[in-house]
Structures are given as structure tokens and as C-alpha cells.
């Protein structure tokens, strides 16, 4: 009897171990597939152009000497320092404006009982259905009239008006989880809603703000549509906009000057450099990232 149980349990444990090993094997395989393109990029960025153009076999270890100057060459081929500066100004200003106004609006919708609140919040959600391309032309004409083309303003000012329905929704959901007793206590102490927003709500929505700031950052950092339409003067270009022209110049080169003119090593080193800040922020804030996706995703 006892041996029977022991045999049964060892068979069970054996199956369990097998299953665990299989889980790891599949997970590692998927991980390798997903990380492989990034490794290919990193390693390619350190190779010479000649090598890259002749390589037909996968080789993730660049031969010595590693071509670190690819990074400098690609960076100085166009005014990328200027583009980086523009990108940072636009990103920081929109991030700040988006966080400030989205949290204000979210607080209003989550806590204050004003006439028409439900209808207006329904409209907020409805605006998520409107593709930005529908409003693009009139908005372009508006910014043209205002003389804002080729300034940072078209990319920043709209973010100071609630930042977008997605962020309002994300933050409202989070504010709803804060106990209202905290508000009431502050109210009894004589706080106005402005005081409650500053002293009760803001200090308590850190994780949601972190999640929102990641998405806001990625949005501004990667945006191509806006810079393409509003910024025609290369003094105001962002990194994304600058890289695009870089690629085009190369394509034109390619038609005129043949394949050898094609600067594939610069592609890879520029790609690496533009990706590094994103990668860094992701690794630092990963937890908030995932929770942000989940909150915004599930409650929808």
C-alpha cells in the first residue's frame, strides 16, 4: 500500500518536472526569437559596411576591431544633436502637460459631482473612436493660420488639453481606487477640491502617473505623423523625422550611386542609439509599464 502511494507520487512528480522543463524550453525559445533581431542590430552596428554587405551567414559576434566610430559617423551625418534637443524639448513639455492636465480632468470625473458628468465622460470615451486622421487637415489649417508651423507648439499644446482620452481614462480608473475617506478628511480640514487634488490625489497616484508617463514618452518619442506634417524646416525636426530623411537620402544615393552607397551600418547604429533611451526607461519602469497596459486594457 505504502509503496503504491510512493510510486504514484513519484510518477506524478516526474510528470510535473517534465512539464516544468517543457515550460522553460518553450519560454526560452520564444525569448530567443524575440530578442534575436535586437542582437542582430547591436552586432551589426559594430561591423564595417563592407562586411555587412557581403554577409550571407548569420554572425552575431562582430569581428575585431569593433567599429565604434559607426555611431559617431552616423550621428554627425546629419544634425542629430539638434534633432535630439528638439525631441527632448517636445517630449518633456508634452509629458509634463499631459500628466498635469490628464490627472486634473481625471480627478474631476472621478470625484466631483457636477451636472452632466456622466454624459461628458461618455463623450471622452467616444473620442477614442475618432481616428486622428479625421481632424488632421483642419488642425493643420488652424496651426497654419496661427503661424505655428515649424515651431514646437503644434506638438505640445494639444497635450496640455487633457493629454488624450486614454490617459484621462487610465488615471480616472486609478483615482477611483483611492478611498474617499481621504478626501473627506481633507475636506473637514478645510481643503478645497484644488487642495484635495494637490495633497491627497496627486501623492497617491504615483504608479498610474508612471504608467501614463511611459506611454506619453513613447508617443512623443516615436511620433512621425505630427512632425511630418507640422515641421518642414530641418531646424525643428525631431529624431524620428530626421532619421526618415536620412533614409531617403540614402535611397536616392542608392539609385544614383549603386548599392555601395547604401549605408546599412549607419542604419543599425542609429537604430541602436534611438532605441537606447526607450530600452533604459523600459528596464527601469517595467513594472509600471505592465500594470499600465493591464489597467487600461482590462477595464475597457
Amino acid at each position: 500500500m505504502a509503496t503504491e502511494i510512493r510510486q504514484a507520487s513519484s510518477a506524478w512528480m516526474y510528470r510535473r518536472a517534465l512539464r516544468l522543463a517543457l515550460n522553460y524550453l518553450i519560454a526560452i525559445a520564444i525569448g530567443i526569437i524575440l530578442i534575436f533581431p535586437l542582437l542582430w542590430m547591436f552586432s551589426g552596428a559594430l561591423k564595417t559596411k563592407e562586411l555587412l554587405l557581403e554577409e550571407t551567414v548569420i554572425n552575431l559576434i562582430p569581428p575585431l576591431p569593433w567599429q565604434w566610430h559607426n555611431f559617431i559617423d552616423a550621428w554627425t551625418a546629419l544634425a542629430f544633436t539638434r534633432f535630439l534637443f528638439n525631441t527632448l524639448v517636445i517630449t518633456v513639455a508634452s509629458l509634463f502637460g499631459g500628466l498635469l492636465t490628464a490627472s486634473m480632468v481625471a480627478y474631476g470625473f472621478a470625484r466631483l459631482r457636477f451636472v452632466g458628468r456622466n454624459v461628458l465622460f461618455f463623450i471622452v470615451l467616444g473620442t477614442m473612436m475618432v481616428p486622428m486622421q479625421v481632424t488632421a487637415i483642419p488642425t493643420f489649417l488652424l496651426f497654419h493660420r496661427l503661424g505655428w508651423l515649424n515651431t514646437y507648439l503644434p506638438l505640445i499644446v494639444p497635450m496640455w488639453m487633457g493629454g488624450g482620452a486614454f490617459y484621462i481614462f487610465l488615471l480616472r480608473q486609478y483615482i477611483m481606487t483611492i478611498p474617499t475617506e481621504l478626501d473627506d478628511a481633507a475636506k473637514i480640514d478645510g481643503c478645497s477640491p484644488i487642495g484635495i487634488y494637490r495633497h491627497v490625489i496627486l501623492p497617491n497616484i504615483g504608479p498610474a502617473l508612471a504608467a501614463a508617463s511611459i506611454f506619453l514618452f513613447l508617443h512623443s518619442w516615436n511620433d512621425l505623423w505630427g512632425p511630418l506634417i507640422y515641421l518642414t524646416d530641418d531646424n525643428t525636426w525631431t529624431l524620428a523625422r530626421g532619421m526618415l530623411t536620412f533614409k531617403r537620402t540614402l535611397a536616392e544615393f542608392r539609385h544614383g550611386g549603386g548599392l555601395r552607397q547604401y549605408q546599412i551600418h549607419w542604419f543599425l547604429s542609429l537604430g541602436t542609439m534611438t532605441m537606447l533611451p526607450v530600452l533604459f526607461i523600459y528596464l527601469v519602469l517595467q513594472r509600471h509599464f505592465v500594470s499600465g497596459v493591464v489597467t487600461s486594457g482590462l477595464k475597457g
Partner: peptide
């Protein structure tokens, strides 16, 4: 693994698209 699997979604964007161009090249 969850962090690893999400990573590509985080880095997608203009920089990554740039790299796709190289990865899809016919010759190399």
C-alpha cells in the same frame, strides 16, 4: 519572461522600423 516578451512592443517605433528595413534586405 513576461518582461522579455513585452520588450519588443516597447521598443517598436521609428528606430525599430529602420532596423526592419535592414533585416528585410534581400541580399544580406
Amino acid at each position: 519572461f513576461r518582461g522579455l516578451f513585452y520588450l519588443p512592443a516597447a521598443v517598436s517605433g521609428v528606430a525599430m522600423t529602420f532596423v526592419w528595413a535592414a533585416m528585410f534586405e534581400k541580399d544580406y
